[in-house]
Simulated scan of single mutants.
Amino acid sequence: MEDNTPTVDHHSSPYHVPVLFYETMEALEIKPEGIYVDCTFGGGGHSRGILDKLGPAGKLVAFDQDADASKNIPEDERVVFVANNFRHLQRFLRLHGFAKVDGVLADLGVSSHQFDEGERGFSTRFEGPLDMRMDQRHENTASAILKKYTEQQLHKLFEQYGEVTNSKTLAKQIVQQRNSSPLQTIAQLKALISPVVKGNPNKYLAQVFQALRIEVNDEMGALKEMLAQIPAVLKPGGRAAIITFHSLEDRLVKNFFRNGSFDEQDENPLSIEERKNDLKIITKKPIVAGTDEVKRNPRSRSAKLRVAERKGQE
């Protein structure tokens, strides 16, 4: 299918280019009077797209735990901003008087803005502290994890969240060297692990940083908690659209949409266990970025959009 999206996306901002923008707007089937949730407001690209389709009676609830995101909130009385993690989805919806909503969107990618700010510690390109906290109110930093985790914990962390090829060797190197070498900055971490870097150094470091970021922010735990709340917050016919960038995230979303749980489906034909699932899958296969979008925004290459709908009649 030909990608006819324009080369200049008027919904993008220097903060974050929204990935799979048109596909997501279409998937949500936005009603002008509906209530929608953007779980990952960021630069507000997807949110502005939703607002464009909402009428005066529509509402958008935007979540973001990163204080920087609040600078991007549009002056619009239809927007309710929640400065918190989306794992508290249902609690804050109730707090603001929304029992049920028409759609939930989450773009799990890290904002380009965060990668481009050295002092946050997300990027391998800039010097800065080994921080990586999305929410500065939390205490756990990448530096703290590297100093206190056991060799086995670090091995599992880099293997599962970073898919680092020599994760065991990497964990051993960190544990052996961390008492004699400081681990406060990005440059110090790079120097400490340089003897064990395999393959393309940029790719290797990106995988290491990804693993640390996921752990610091408990991204998998937060995603599971948010997904588990989706059937309860969606109106019948309401839709959830989730964009993932990592195979583990995608598996969680796929399994939950398909089974109503995070377990792999039991393929045993003799199994009598009947799982209740209030969601129906809209995307049999995930939607991925077209050639033009990948050219414009290389980070969209690994993006996968999955969509599910709440069963039942309004």
Rank of each mutant, 00 (worst) to 15 (best):
T150H: 09
P298R: 04
Y161V: 05
C39D: 03
A240I: 00
K285L: 09
T24S: 12
G237Q: 04
G58Q: 06
G34F: 00
N277V: 08
L20F: 10
T291Q: 13
I193V: 15
R48C: 00
K59I: 00
A228H: 07
N140V: 14
A232D: 15
C39S: 11
V17F: 13
A142Q: 06
H16L: 04
S247A: 15
K276D: 13
D135S: 10
E314N: 13
N202P: 06
Q160T: 14
N202L: 13
K31H: 12
N277A: 12
L248Q: 10
E33Q: 15
V79H: 01
L130K: 01
P201F: 10
L54K: 06
N268K: 10
H155W: 14
S47I: 02
L227Y: 05
G45D: 04
M220N: 10
E33Y: 11
T141H: 05
T185D: 10
A62G: 00
K285E: 12
S180W: 04
R178G: 09
P269D: 05
H16E: 06
N179L: 12
P56G: 12
S13D: 02
E267I: 14
H46R: 03
Q188P: 12
L157S: 00
V196W: 00
M226D: 03
K295E: 14
G312Q: 06
R301Q: 15
R48E: 01
R296D: 06
A62W: 01
D52S: 15
P269I: 06
E249P: 07
E219W: 07
L28H: 01
H96V: 02
N259M: 07
H46N: 04
K304W: 11
N84R: 13
P236W: 09
D9F: 10
S167M: 07
L189M: 12
L183A: 13
V61T: 09
N217R: 08
L54P: 05
P129G: 10
Q65N: 01
Q90I: 03
F21S: 00
T283C: 05
